[in-house]
Design a protein around this nucleic acid. Structure first.
Lengths: 195, 195
DNA sequence: AGTGGCATGTAAGTGGTTACATGATTGG
DNA sequence: CCAATCATGTAACCACTTACATGCCACT
């Protein structure tokens, strides 16, 4: 007897297929970017999950012959799949668990060499700045190409818009914190001994 | 042959034991709160990990007889453990993976009923507001009790200070986004049809 | 006698990562 | 001929969650 419940990854795939039919390979690419910004998965997780969704009747596939490239399977969401997804969307989430190794390091930073630690935080600041720029650029692109559609809450563009906005806010705040920590560490290294 | 590499949870435990010797039970409590804000673990993960750290010579324990409560083992970090931890602290992190079900839902929100979705986002706003208040309160307490120590980068209070600051920034930004999304959804439900 | 906190562990299952495995086709 | 991209899968391993299991002690 097949288990009825669907994993979060399953819903992620349904969410992508609700926009367009896709091959497993395409889905894997999309799960790296842009979906990877909030839910990552590799192809070794995706192919089995697609098979499971198909057994549950939530997606179907058809074989597509290609001349210029290897043949592929194109998956589509079924009406049942769409219903499942819509139900999940308005279901309350259980409290999110954060696992952030950098904050854990921050919690132990009193044991580290301040300047080496500052370097680490500056590296992370750079990373989040880059992510921030990417999100900003994506959002600008959406605004430029779909300015009208973007504000219709029943359009995928609206969903893209608010998701990129979260990315912008998240990485901007994270970068701010990293730089703030780095400065405290560096200032203290500059003026070490006191009273 | 015992594997040499230490899991992030292992470092979290070393980080706590570097502050004070603790029992597994105490560590489990601390891993719920306050460490749970950035790295959660249950006792079923902690006890085996402590045993592993001990086999690696990074912690030791002594049996403590108690009259008023069940006996316990008190774990302490060893010099080797402290060295491992200090080395890890300044090691570059691999890019953090974010898994956030709410942002995933946001990415699919165009399929959902706007008002039901708005409710979900307001619930999350409440959650992050509560977390924000908690972090703020913890930081105020640190400032009040350890205002001097808090600014010394080699003090655990400094680590507490910057970790709570991250919590404040994170949850403040998350709350802001949730409320912003909820408003967009509600406004659109108020004025649905357009040209 | 029962509840709740202290205290320590193991077992089973799930979700996710890394590595293994194969093969077509295009372009340099 | 080689590397890169397209394309699809399996296997082994690891981290984490949930459930199982036991027992002491204090308070009501």
């Amino acid at each position: 007897m097949e288990k009825r419940s669907i994993s979060t990854l399953g819903f992620a795939l349904l969410g992508l297929l609700a926009r367009d039919p896709r091959s497993g390979y395409d889905l894997a690419r999309l799960m790296r970017v842009p979906v990877g910004l909030f839910w990552k998965a590799g192809h070794s997780q995706i192919y089995p999950e697609l098979a499971r969704l198909e057994r549950l009747g939530l997606v179907t596939h058809e074989r597509v012959e290609q001349l210029d490239r290897p043949n592929k399977k194109t998956f589509s969401i079924t009406p049942a799949g769409r219903r499942e997804l819509q139900g999940w969307l308005v279901q309350p989430n259980d409290p999110p668990i954060n696992r952030d190794a950098l904050v854990l390091k921050a919690f132990c930073i009193w044991l580290a060499d301040p300047l080496a630690a500052a370097r680490l935080f500056r590296e992370h600041a750079d990373f989040h700045r880059a992510q921030l720029d990417y999100c900003q650029q994506q959002q600008d692109e959406i605004r430029r190409r779909f300015g009208r559609e973007m504000l219709r809450v029943d359009s995928p563009r609206f969903a893209d818009y608010i998701a990129t906005e979260r990315g912008i806010g998240y990485h901007r705040e994270y970068e701010r914190w990293c730089l703030w920590v780095a400065e405290l560490l560096e200032r203290s290294a500059g003026a070490p001994a006191e009273g």
